[in-house]
C-alpha cells in the first residue's frame, strides 16, 4: 500500500516537473522571440506611453489637485465664541438689535408680493402660473416667442420674442380680430397689401378673449392647440380656451404680468 502511494507521488512529481520545464521553455522562447524581434519597437512604445501617462497625471494634478490643495492649505478661522458673561451680555444686545432689523426687513420683503391675482409667464419652458399672493390658482401650458429673426428682401428684420420683465394688463377684449402686420405677409411670401386692406383682418384666430399687455403684445387664444408648450409665436402669449377664459375672468385691468 505504502509502495503504491510512493509510486503515485513520484509519478505526480515527474509530471509536475515535466510541465514546469515545458512552461519554462515556452516562456523563454516567447520572451526571446519578442525581445529579439520587437525589442526596439516595444522600448519606444513604452517610452511614449510613459510620457503620455506623465502628461495625463500632470494635467489631472493641475486641473483637479492644485485648486483643492491650495484651498485646504488656508486654515479656516471660525468666529470667536466667548464664554465671558460680560461679553455675552453685549453680544445679546447686538443680537436683539439685529433680530429687530431682520423682522422689519422680512416684513418689507413680504409686502412686495401682490395680494390680488397676477400671472407669471415662463418663456423658456412655455408655461404660465396664476397666483393670488403666495397661493397658486392655476398653471398650464402656453406658447411664447419663437426667437426667429425674419429677414426680408429689403434687409428689414423682425425678431419674434416675448419681452421679459414686468408688465400690466392694459385692456381686455372679447372676440378679438387680428390685424395682420407687414411681417405676417412677408413670412408667407405674399405681397404686402395697403394699410386698411380687407386681407389684413383675420377673424377667430385669436380665440374668444384677448388681454393687452402693451406695445402690441397680447395674451390670446389659438387655433394651433398642438403647439402649446412650444416657442412658436411672434411675441404674443397663446393659451388654450379654458385657461384663457380663466385668465380673462381672474385678471383685471392693471393686474401685474411677470414674464421671464
Amino acid at each position: 500500500m505504502n509502495n503504491l502511494k510512493l509510486y503515485i507521488i513520484s509519478i505526480c512529481a515527474w509530471v509536475l516537473k515535466l510541465g514546469n520545464s515545458i512552461i519554462n521553455e515556452l516562456i523563454r522562447f516567447t520572451k526571446s522571440f519578442w525581445v529579439n524581434k520587437f525589442r526596439n519597437t516595444a522600448k519606444w512604445i513604452w517610452y511614449i506611453m510613459r510620457i503620455v501617462i506623465a502628461i495625463v497625471v500632470f494635467l489631472f494634478i493641475l486641473i483637479q489637485g492644485i485648486p483643492v490643495l491650495t484651498e485646504f492649505i488656508i486654515i479656516p478661522r471660525n468666529a470667536i465664541v466667548l464664554k465671558d458673561t460680560a461679553l455675552r451680555v453685549k453680544q445679546e444686545k447686538i443680537e436683539k438689535v439685529l433680530s429687530k432689523d431682520i423682522a422689519q426687513l422680512e416684513k418689507k420683503m413680504a409686502a412686495f408680493t401682490p395680494k390680488y391675482p397676477y400671472i407669471i409667464i415662463n418663456t423658456t419652458d412655455n408655461t404660465f402660473y396664476v397666483y393670488r399672493g403666495q397661493i397658486l390658482l392655476r398653471k398650464g401650458k402656453c406658447s411664447t416667442g419663437s426667437y426667429i429673426n425674419l429677414v426680408s428682401d429689403n434687409k428689414k428684420s423682425w425678431v419674434f420674442k416675448t419681452p421679459r420683465g414686468e408688465r400690466r394688463i392694459h385692456g381686455k377684449i372679447t372676440s378679438p380680430v387680428w390685424r395682420k402686420p407687414d411681417w405676417a405677409f412677408i413670412e408667407e411670401g405674399i405681397p404686402i397689401p395697403s394699410a386698411f386692406h380687407n386681407s389684413r383682418y383675420e377673424y377667430g384666430v385669436l380665440g374668444d378673449y384677448a388681454l393687452s399687455i402693451g406695445d402690441g403684445y397680447l395674451i390670446h387664444g389659438t387655433i394651433y392647440k398642438r403647439q402649446l408648450g412650444m416657442p412658436v409665436t411672434h411675441g404674443c402669449v397663446r393659451l388654450n380656451d379654458e385657461d384663457l377664459k380663466y385668465v380673462y375672468q381672474t385678471l383685471e385691468v392693471g393686474s401685474r404680468v411677470f414674464i421671464y
Binding site: 468666529a79 453680544q91 443680537e95 439685529l98 433680530s99 431682520i102 418689507k108
Partner: peptide
Amino acid sequence: HSLYSQEVVKMLREKAYL
C-alpha cells in the same frame, strides 16, 4: 472682534441677504 458670536455672524448675514 470679540463681539462676534456665531449667532451674531449668522444674523449679520441674514440681514445682508434681506
